[in-house]
Nucleic acid binder design. Sequence first.
DNA 1: CCATTGATCGTCT
DNA 2: GACGATCAATGGT
Length: 193
Amino acid sequence: MVARDLLGRVIVSGDGAHRVAVRLTEVEAYRGRDDSASHAFRGPTPRTAVMFGPAGHLYTYFVYGMHWCANIVTGPNGLASAVLLRAGEVVDGIDVARGRRPKVESDRLLARGPAGLATVLGLDGSSSGADLCLPNSEIRMHAGSQVSESAIRSGRRVGVATAADLELRFWIADDPTVSAFRAWTPRRRKPVG
DNA sequence: CCATTGATCGTCT
DNA sequence: GACGATCAATGGT
């Protein structure tokens, strides 16, 4: 399992009227212990334990005090590799997706960006560790359609401070749902007084 | 379209 | 105590 193999696959959450499906158009690889930008770089912690487990499970994390983002653990080794789901196209449950992001104007932006993608699928901390390969799970993955190698582009990862030169971000060429690249910039602290 | 900035809190040191 | 795998609002071009 490699990051580019995930492009074109479909992540599905919920059933019936709650079903939402997202076809992945942009992903970003994190090489566990070998990668200073990875949450697994300093070894397992309670939060990152699932990254050190078997492939095909979900790893969700909370950032900036307000957003959830989702990864798929890729394994199969003890390296704790994972792939961040950066963007996708909502292919089913568009009304549910719109309801979860009522301020988003265009459907193509509904699952653009990792936090938006997780929101549309209804993912949060309770989803972490879920096995995506179980067909009856609340969250599961379908094969989707194959994306040809010639349609895949790669480039630097978004918003990472270290290992910034690695080209571990992959997306489907010319897809309107792919997120915009933003280089990492240092963050000003809120004034103390 | 682009650039800038505030919001907000779990996690690890 | 500092920081972060982000987003949306704002204001300019």
